[in-house]
């Protein structure tokens, strides 16, 4: 047996190739990158970061409303990937896994902030006497108004809107990320959309439903 036979090496390398690897693809899949991270390759975590950081950051920013918190949490998500990669079972898409970690860390950060605010005797929210979202929206075009109404939805409703429309997640993936049943995902989506319809109507925009 010639140890330098090229075909033999190619076969050996093919045997060692990870499942799902595309032979002609120039780009490693997210799962392959997680597998590399599990083998201790920091470069793989950096590549995952380059692919997903913006979306994770935006997701956390929408949850917390704080740039500082979004920055800290989003970076912490990718450090968690580095720590947890050997335990990633591949049952969910990597992006769904990342958003699930982000959600958990964002809630923890919010809880810490609330506890800190209570300790310091601060009010959680301050009314500023500005226009209500509906009044402000009357000054906007419909698209801008809708964006403002989405921003002002309760967090549990805004999150399902973002996860479906912006992150492209399915009902079951949203259920995984938020740790809620799929029926709850559907009801949250229904009421989120209903509230948007009501807000548009109150601002003078006609809507076909409800």
């Amino acid at each position: 047996m010639n140890p330098f036979d090229l075909s033999q090496h190619t076969e050996e390398r093919a045997k060692r190739a990870k499942p799902g690897m595309k032979a002609q693809s120039n780009q490693l899949s997210d799962r392959e990158l997680v597998a590399q991270a599990a083998r201790g390759e920091r470069a793989a975590v950096r590549l995952l970061f380059m692919r997903h950081h913006a979306r994770v950051y935006r997701f956390v920013m929408r949850q917390t409303g704080s740039e500082t918190m979004a920055d800290d949490v989003a970076n912490e998500v990718f450090l968690e990937v580095w720590r947890q990669a050997p335990r990633f079972e591949g049952r969910a898409e990597v992006s769904t896994w990342l958003l699930g970690i982000a959600r958990y860390k964002a809630l923890s950060a919010l809880r810490r902030r609330r506890e800190q605010a209570l300790d310091e005797g601060q009010a959680e929210a301050v009314e500023d006497g500005a226009d209500t979202p509906e009044v402000t929206a009357m000054k906007d075009d419909k698209g801008t108004a809708l964006r403002r109404f989405i921003d002002n939805l309760p967090e549990e409703h805004r999150t399902v809107i973002d996860l479906a429309y912006y992150h492209g997640k399915s009902v079951s993936e949203i259920g995984e990320i938020l740790a809620i049943p799929v029926a709850t995902v559907k009801t949250r989506m229904f009421y989120a959309r209903k509230k948007l319809g009501e807000a548009l109507k109150a601002a003078g925009y006609d809507r076909g439903w409800p």
């Binding site: 950096r46 970061f49 920013m61 920055d71 970076n75 989405i150 809107i161 912006y166 959309r193």
Partner: peptide, 29 residues
Amino acid sequence: EAEAEYSAAAMGNEAIRPPADALSRLSAA
């Protein structure tokens, strides 16, 4: 209406700009 919501959600998210130095801080960490 769902299509309009789709555009509005995308605009709302894309308007958020992540910090430019996040990768270098992650690398250091």
